[in-house]
Each structure stands twice: as C-alpha cells, then as structure tokens.
C-alpha cells in the first residue's frame, strides 16, 4: 500500500463523513463544519495525487489545493456571516423545515 492510496482512502473517508454530516445535521454550524470536512477530504485526495510521481511533487496540484483552501476559507467565512445574521434575526441555529419545496 503506497502513500498515495492512504491519502486517497483518508480523503474519501473524510468526504464520506462530511457528506453524511452535511445531509444528517440541521444545525447550521455543524453543516458548515461538515462542508469543511468534505473540502479537506477532497484536498487530501488531491494531495495524494500529487505524491504519485517518483518523489517529485506536482506543483500544479499544490497550487490548486492552495487555491482550493483559500476558496473554502472564504466560503466558510461567508457562511458564518450569514449564519450569524440568521441567528440574530431568528434566534435559531437551523433553518425552518420547508415541506413545500
């Protein structure tokens, strides 16, 4: 088992856990964290790919992961702002269940 596969498996595991959390939880913060888990899983998989060469890391992947992390951070920040605002307005940490849509 090479490191590549370990990275990939871990990544997939993280993604799975994150996805489960994202679907399962109603609490907005938990879902945001779940999203971050998925993101991290994805990055892990990508980093795994980067290891594939014979000791030479792929710069492209690293650049991509870096960009991805930045984007994810921005997304998390935006999410947090919105959640906070929601909490201020409604005093609730989850969205009302909407059966119609």
């Amino acid at each position: 088992m090479d490191t590549n596969l370990i990275f990939t498996l871990c990544g997939v595991g993280l993604c799975g856990i994150g996805f489960f959390g994202f679907i399962y939880h109603r609490h907005l913060l938990r879902r945001l964290i779940a999203f971050n888990l998925i993101g991290n899983g994805t990055f892990l998989i990508m980093v795994g790919f980067a290891q594939r060469g014979q000791g030479v890391t792929d710069h492209v992947i690293q650049a991509l992961v870096l960009t991805g992390i930045v984007v994810a951070v921005a997304a998390t920040a935006l999410g947090l702002v919105l959640i906070r605002r929601w909490f201020q307005l409604k005093g609730s940490t989850q969205l009302p269940e909407d059966d119609a849509s």
Binding site: T42, I45, L64
Partner: peptide, 25 residues
C-alpha cells in the same frame, strides 16, 4: 434562501472539484 443556496452551491462545487481532481489524477 441564501443559506440554503450557499450550502447547495458549496456541496456542488466540492463535488465538482473532487471530480476535477480525479480527472487530473
């Protein structure tokens, strides 16, 4: 609506990113 939208979009983007990563791999 925006929170829902954000979550859906983030999930979508992440799936897309994962797919792209696999393709690159």
């Amino acid at each position: 609506a925006s929170i829902r939208y954000l979550y859906a979009a983030l999930l979508g983007s992440m799936a897309y990113l994962l797919g792209v990563a696999l393709l690159y791999g």
